[in-house]
Write a protein that binds this DNA or RNA. Structure first.
Lengths: 122, 122
DNA sequence: AAGAATATATCGAGGTTCGATATATCCAAA
DNA sequence: TTTGGATATATCGAACCTCGATATATTCTT
């Protein structure tokens, strides 16, 4: 179970939101599920990140009151904060994907020359 | 000019040291040169990192006194701290390369499904 | 003689992540 | 019906990381 660091967190969260709007808990579950439990994004890292995305205008948010079928009509119900990728967010994601590719390619160059690299010829 | 974050810094520095012993300034130059100026590892990030590698037993160190040809025989000369990858460091590098590959593969999975992904079919 | 390059290192400020904790609702099983 | 697990958002202090600036000193080039 690997913890995602900021750069990767942002890339992955933006990628998840690119499919469609979602909310914190669902994003966190999506990351755990789609990575077969390999990645986790803890609430203590996720919420500050989502807040930052909102502050930077990469996502817009709205609250949903999820009331159960037989719930007390006066109860507040469960609150869900939806995050929607903004046009700025879409552009940012495209930029980050490109950056990610370049970064990968160069890091792979360093790794490739290491004798520890199982895929290296020497 | 991208700044390397801790995980990547460690992977890249270990990869550089896997070729052979080196010292701080040379490592920093190697990273800048081999990445065509794309990556930088600032002294303020590099020296704490190298110290940590030493503390964790991944590298061993030794000082070299580099005296110039016509230098004052009593001068201390320029000091160079050499870093050599230890057996533990070699194992750690192999583990990190494997981890890096897995991480890449999963992140690519998330990125691949984003409509922003230029390489995606949709 | 001046300045660029070589070389190592620390400092405080600011940012990030962790584990723990807090709060509250909903659902399923005993 | 009550207990517990899952759903759901959020903050706190401690620990850690990185930045830009700064410090110090040597060596090479012009």
């Amino acid at each position: 179970m690997l913890t995602l660091k900021q750069d990767h967190s942002e890339l992955v969260v933006l990628s998840v939101l690119a499919i469609g709007p979602s909310y914190g808990y669902a994003i966190s579950k999506a990351i755990a599920t789609q990575s077969d439990g390999y990645f986790k994004l803890l609430p203590s890292a996720m919420y500050p990140l989502l807040t930052k995305l909102e502050k930077n205008g990469l996502v817009t948010t709205s609250w949903e009151e999820v009331k159960a079928a037989g719930a007390d009509p006066d109860s507040t119900g469960r609150r869900r904060k939806w995050y929607t990728l903004s046009p700025k967010g879409h552009k940012q994601l495209a930029r980050r994907i490109e950056l990610h590719r370049q970064t990968q390619s160069i890091i792979d160059g360093f790794v490739a020359q290491a004798p520890e690299n199982q895929l290296a010829s020497g």
